[in-house]
């Protein structure tokens, strides 16, 4: 009896041990190509970035388009993507355990995320920051103009800390800070004149402004607090996969710089510039070295356009979440922004 149960326990332990033994994995790229579908981790509740639109039941936003762009570049078809919906808590686990091949989820690049969590970041694709929104009629242009007034924000957020730091560093003492428990109350207080400015992330400000009955009544100040650069992320230590995706994002920036759009793609293929011809895979190409089709950039641009087109679709002037790019870090470097691709020759 005793011997039998000892053997039983031993077998159970062995089974667990075998199951837990790590298995060697090839590059994620090989998995994706074999599967024929890209598993892309993204969210469903961030309008403008990754949002399941209740009216259409379709995924939309900048992050969603980045997923589609990746699928187009790797597999040649933007629809060969499966969205793995993640939360702020599960996003990194999803990628490190291989349930998703890449994550685009308005994720801020922090050192600890690359040092302690086993992910590698892709190039930064959006620069967010804390910001201020005021009523246009007040004529306020900088934070200093708010002297003697009240700035409102939500309780317990990073913005509250950032405001305190800003006031300390700029030695501002005559601005009061008032906090509310939710953003809609802050916005209502701004509308009623109880607050002179509303402070939170610039992207959130833009969507509050955009959804108000008269967006032109409000302006978002150029000044900001803190830095919140968003980037995609992949599992760490897989250079083959990471490099391909890095250059995919760079390709979106480069296409905008050259003015290659979905509409003029076929024309641009006839360009005499040998670098553009190579970029689009007309003559030779760089895809082969990344183990994908030479036309990977052309496929991607055909499907989702360049970075500027993607931006306009999700955050452009025709959307409720309009955030002006000009003069911000989110402009291409040729227009004074920070979106810059290394050369492709």
């Amino acid at each position: 009896m005793r011997l039998r149960s000892t053997i039983g326990y031993f077998c159970t332990a062995l089974a667990f041990g075998l199951a837990a033994a790590p298995t060697a994995r090839a590059s994620v790229l090989d998995d994706v190509k074999q599967r024929g579908v890209l598993n892309c981790a993204t969210g469903d509740a961030i309008p403008g970035f990754s949002y399941l639109n209740p009216k259409t039941s379709k995924m939309e936003g900048l992050d969603v388009d980045l997923c589609r762009a990746t699928a187009a570049a790797v597999l040649g078809d933007p629809d060969k993507v499966h969205f793995v919906i993640v939360t702020g808590k599960s996003r990194f686990n999803t990628v490190t355990t291989g349930q998703a091949d890449v994550g685009f989820f308005s994720t801020t690049v922090y050192p600890v995320r690359e040092s302690a969590i086993a992910v590698d970041f892709l190039p930064i694709n959006f620069y967010d920051a804390g910001g201020f929104m005021v009523k246009a009629s007040t004529g306020v242009e900088t934070v200093k103009d708010l002297a003697g007034g009240t700035i409102c924000t939500t309780q317990g957020t990073a913005t509250e800390v950032a405001l305190a730091n800003l006031f300390k560093s700029q030695n501002i003492t005559d601005i009061k800070v008032l906090t509310f428990d939710s953003a809609d109350k802050v916005f209502a207080a701004l509308g009623s004149g109880r607050c002179n400015a509303m402070a939170t992330d610039k992207t959130a400000l833009a969507s509050w402004r955009g959804s108000s009955p008269k967006p032109d009544d409000y302006i978002i100040l150029r000044e900001g607090t803190g830095k919140s650069p968003f980037a995609g992320f992949v599992v760490a230590n897989d250079s083959k996969w990471r490099n391909l995706l890095r250059w995919t994002v760079f390709g979106l920036f480069q296409a905008e710089e050259w003015g290659i759009t979905t509409a003029n793609l076929d024309e641009m293929k006839k360009s005499p510039d040998p670098v553009i011809r190579k970029f689009l895979g007309v003559e030779g190409g760089m895809g082969e070295d990344f183990h994908v089709s030479n036309s990977f950039m052309a496929d991607m641009i055909k499907a989702v356009g360049n970075y500027g087109e993607m931006y306009d679709r999700s955050l452009g002037p025709k959307t409720p979440y309009y955030i002006d790019r000009t003069g911000t870090p989110n402009a291409s470097w040729v227009n004074g922004g920070l979106l810059y691709s290394p050369p492709w020759e």
Binding site: D44, Y51, P54, V84, I85, S90, D184
Partner: peptide, 19 residues
């Protein structure tokens, strides 16, 4: 918590749109 959208979360999803 694991990213599934049940009935309650569908409602919350509708409400995240400022509109």
């Amino acid at each position: 918590i694991i990213g599934l959208m049940d009935f309650l979360r569908a409602g919350q999803l509708i409400l995240v749109d400022p509109a």
